[in-house]
Design a protein around this nucleic acid. Structure first.
Lengths: 332, 332
DNA sequence: TCTAATTTGTGCGTATGTATG
DNA sequence: GCATACATACGCACAAATTAG
């Protein structure tokens, strides 16, 4: 295989494709400072392009100080400092408050010369698939939050696997990819266990769980917990029209349901954190002060954003479990 | 046989026949993503139509994201999703909680066959400018939130003015454009006036105003109010290290400062809504329940999203002042 | 390095049919 | 019947990008 490749990217001019394939070879360490580039004529013959096309590519690199030419000898790499402008494809499920932290810490750690484009699939497989197919080859890195969509591997495998990072929810079929994920099953189990003493004040756990939005691991972890510690429990998919009763603890991943419960409790005389409890999911600033503080099981979205930025810049192959913690406040 | 055929359908305009024959070729798999379309001139010669006719057909496909053009090379199929009838370019300032309502009601009213791409300029003029220049001609409608960036007209005037809507903050230089805006100066004045009886319980107004993020009209409206009703006042740019004192009312556009004030008040014995007051800006769900309810001056973001969707589908030329209201809760 | 061919991008002028009031 | 606006269609000219020889 040669260093240069042309016609991977249909839209780009040929000379730019030559430039970027050489830049890539340098950044991957295939060619190093002092190495000779293939001659102009050899590239012309091998790829069937005009001599001028190769020349304009080399001139581009030369004007930027990446290569130097020596008459009668050839072109040589003179600097490995290529400022490849990176573009990152960031595919979220939906827009919501706690992505603010993730996104802004991601951008802060990334440099200014990296462009990030955001997309949302809204839990719609066809849209998910279209967004990825339409953008194959256009980005230097793909960050994908598959949420609980199934069969995403069928789409994702069309991307270069060294340029993909799976975010938040991990699926078996995607095991081979770089990922920053939450281990929902163990996290909810361990964090409930961590709050066991406080939960024991109550006698009944209500999990507000929607199959469409929440990951299945959450449910499994919850069920493990109630079985192991022999709690009475109930699973409901919405808190609409639900009025809390004494001795109940609500575990609420979705903020709309959180508000429903708190508002409907205004009718009762129950005191939150004494007569009934709430454990929320995904911490946001406002939860620090709502009703004196809402207890939350939450991953550290700032940390997730920072680590993601490091992955994008360093292109390591790793699977990172993002830390998750129980933040105890007055609602429990 | 060529890909394009004209005069099968005598009723339809020629450019639309070209569009649909290309769509048909894509859906039949005759041309695929990455393939080059016949050149404009070749279609003109082959079918004896004007160059302009072919061009308007290609522009239609381009604005829908089906094809992309590369100057000097040709038109290339970039997406096989031919059911997308419109693509909308949506440029926000930053990602934050209340945009959730705006965005989701916008999408709900828009049909399924309209694709929306979101971008953020982060109050950075160079980024703002680059994002627009990079996407000229690629969308059928441009929704732009200039925030308080200056000289945006220099960039925006390069877009077709009938395909642009200015969102939220209006500037004099952008007066000619379709817009859904807030009249910050009058809204803050009128809403403070509406809450006058409650504000009168206190004797000093503190406005937490940052020039970088908040629109200048807000400050003007506030100053009009304190002058007309002879309130003592103070303007600070951050609530960091600020501890509320008795008799103060805080007007707080930014949620981080809101939280700072509420948290720092835990040190004091002051009761919110009696000893000191808070008026927040931009209502979100959680403000209904924070500290028993935070009073907010807020525009109706759901309404804004709905009206925006109507504008995009009907392409009317209007300037709409989005309704704004004082939502009185216990914090005042 | 120069010239040429091809292609897109843009602007201007003109003409025709259709819908609207 | 008349005036106006709009979409459609055509022709021409020139600029800029790409590629080839």
């Amino acid at each position: 295989m040669g260093i240069v490749s042309i016609n991977k990217d249909f839209g780009a001019p040929k000379y730019k494709q030559i430039v970027s394939s050489i830049e890539e070879a340098i950044s991957n360490g295939i060619i190093k400072k002092g190495d000779r580039l293939p001659s102009i004529n050899s590239i012309r013959d091998k790829h069937g392009v005009s001599r001028d096309t190769v020349l304009s590519a080399f001139n581009d690199l030369k004007s930027r100080g990446v290569v130097q030419s020596v008459a009668g000898k050839g072109y040589f790499v003179s600097s490995e400092a290529i400022h490849v402008k990176q573009k990152v494809f960031l595919l979220f499920d939906e827009l919501n408050a706690f992505k603010e932290d993730l996104y802004s810490s991601f951008l802060n750690v990334l440099g200014d010369n990296i462009q990030v484009d955001i997309f949302f699939h809204h839990f719609n497989y066809k849209l998910f698939s279209k967004l990825i197919y339409d953008n194959i080859g256009d980005y230097s890195y793909y960050v994908i939050m598959p949420a609980n969509l199934k069969d995403t591997y069928q789409v994702i495998r069309n991307l270069p696997s060294d340029k993909v990072c799976i975010l938040d929810q991990m699926h078996q079929e995607l095991e081979g990819y770089t990922a920053i994920y939450q281990d929902f099953e163990n996290d909810i189990f361990n964090n409930l266990k961590k709050g066991l003493d406080l939960i024991k004040k109550y006698n009944r756990l209500i999990f507000v769980f929607s199959e469409d939005k929440q990951p299945p691991g959450m449910l499994l972890g919850f069920l493990n917990f109630v079985k192991q510690f022999k709690f009475e429990y109930e699973i409901i998919d919405s808190a609409r029209n639900r009025v809390p009763e004494s001795g109940e603890v609500y575990i609420i991943p979705d903020d709309r349901n959180l508000i429903r419960i708190i508002k409907s409790n205004k009718q009762t005389k129950l005191k939150l954190g004494r007569d009934f409890g709430i454990i929320s999911y995904n911490d946001t600033m406002l939860k620090e002060i709502v009703e004196g503080g809402i207890t939350a099981i939450s991953t550290d979205f700032n940390k997730m954003g920072e680590q993601l930025a490091e992955l994008v810049t360093n292109k390591e192959y790793v699977q990172i479990k993002n830390p998750n913690d129980l933040i105890i406040r007055k609602s429990l």
